[in-house]
């Protein structure tokens, strides 16, 4: 079996295995698995309203997935999407609240501010990796918590008078659209999905069609060879972190300008950043794969909310399934061994 086919089969197997174990958990704990999955489906695609919500949920997931995938493709593991997202969210809302600009332009400025904020936050681990050879995983984890506490502090002291959320952003900065809302029975669907899809195109074009993208991938594959070929390794590492962070910042803008319209004090992470890791992995770090994986996880997350209502099953079951899918993709060596064994039997 060719590697290409295997690369498609492995994620599909991982999803099936994840669902299977989820089903077993429900059977063992005495829940009705059929009712649960029916409720899940209805909650994601049963009505146009739910579908609108799924697409809204998919929007930041695509961008977070792109962020992780871009870093992966260039040999870096950006586990700091969560922090870069929070920083981007804050920057977008800040521009949305503090500036007075005409519509569209205001939105664009706020979106760009989010991207820049995320990029700057990711510049730190990039710089430390390039100059001091510090592993980016630990630095980005530490910066996640730093971002959480710092943004909470700014929201409490600068953007509000000791309140736990900012004001709503001005109408000129919003990504919301009464047209899209009307189309989907008043879901919170907003224009962000267009930005996310443009992001997918940019990632594909940048990595596959430009010299810079070739260099970035090359440095990810083999630093020494790239250095020998005359590429500036340090610059490429920093650039790749910065671009990855910009995608994460945009994901924050989707929440700040689209879904919520404000920023609030957080006790913990949004989870979107970590789901982005799942999206990138399952999607094989490719543009189409990221869209499909984001769609799957978005549908699971939104559909899950219907499970307690319709089937009496706790929605955390979906979190378990997502964790299992990540686990099975990570341990794909097991699935590959299994496929090899089966295809060898076929040959005999």
């Amino acid at each position: 079996m060719s590697n290409r086919v295997k690369n498609i089969i492995v994620p599909i197997m991982a999803v099936i295995l994840g669902m299977l174990v989820g089903t077993i958990i429900m059977v063992v704990t005495g829940y009705d698995a059929v009712a649960a999955f029916t409720a899940l489906w209805n909650g994601a695609f049963g009505e146009i309203y739910y579908t609108g919500e799924v697409i809204r949920q998919v929007t930041p997931l695509i961008l977070a997935g792109l962020s992780v995938a871009f870093a992966f493709r260039t040999g870096l593991f950006n586990i700091g999407v969560e922090g870069q997202l929070i920083v981007g969210w804050l920057a977008a809302v800040w521009v949305g609240v503090a500036f007075d600009l005409p519509p569209v332009i205001h939105t664009l400025v706020a979106v760009i501010a989010a991207g820049v904020a995320g990029a700057l936050w990711a510049f730190i681990p990039g710089l430390l990796k390039a100059k001091f050879r510090v592993h980016e995983v630990i630095v980005t984890i530490m910066l996640n918590y730093t971002a959480l506490h710092v943004t909470n502090y700014i929201i409490r002291t600068v953007l509000s008078e000791k309140s736990d959320r900012t004001e709503m952003i001005k109408g000129t900065a919003t990504l919301r659209s009464s047209f899209l809302e009307g189309l989907t029975d008043y879901s919170r669907l907003h224009w962000g999905i267009v930005i996310a899809l443009i992001g997918v195109f940019i990632m594909w074009f940048l990595l596959e069609k430009t010299t810079r993208g070739y260099e970035l991938r090359s440095v990810g594959f083999n630093q020494h060879a790239s250095h020998y070929a005359g590429m500036n390794v340090d610059k490429n590492i920093i650039l790749s972190m910065v671009i990855s962070g910009a995608f994460a910042g945009l994901a924050g803008a989707m929440e700040g300008l689209g879904t919520f319209g404000y920023a609030s004090i957080k006790g913990g992470f949004t989870g979107v950043g970590f789901d982005g890791i799942a999206v990138a992995l399952l999607g094989g770090n490719g543009p189409i794969g990221v869209i499909l994986a984001a769609l799957l996880f978005g549908a699971l997350k939104v559909g899950a909310l219907n499970m307690p209502l319709e089937a009496g099953v706790p929605n955390e079951l979906v979190d378990i399934i997502i964790a299992l899918i990540v686990f099975f993709v990570a341990a794909s060596y097991m699935i590959r061994l299994f496929i090899d064994r089966i295809s060898k039997k076929g040959v005999k």
Binding site: F274, V326, S332
Partner: peptide, 15 residues
């Protein structure tokens, strides 16, 4: 199964 250890750790956290 020689998984990426960071990814496996993320899965443990989510799970």
């Amino acid at each position: 199964f020689r998984a990426d250890q960071t990814v496996s750790g993320v899965a443990i956290n989510l799970l």
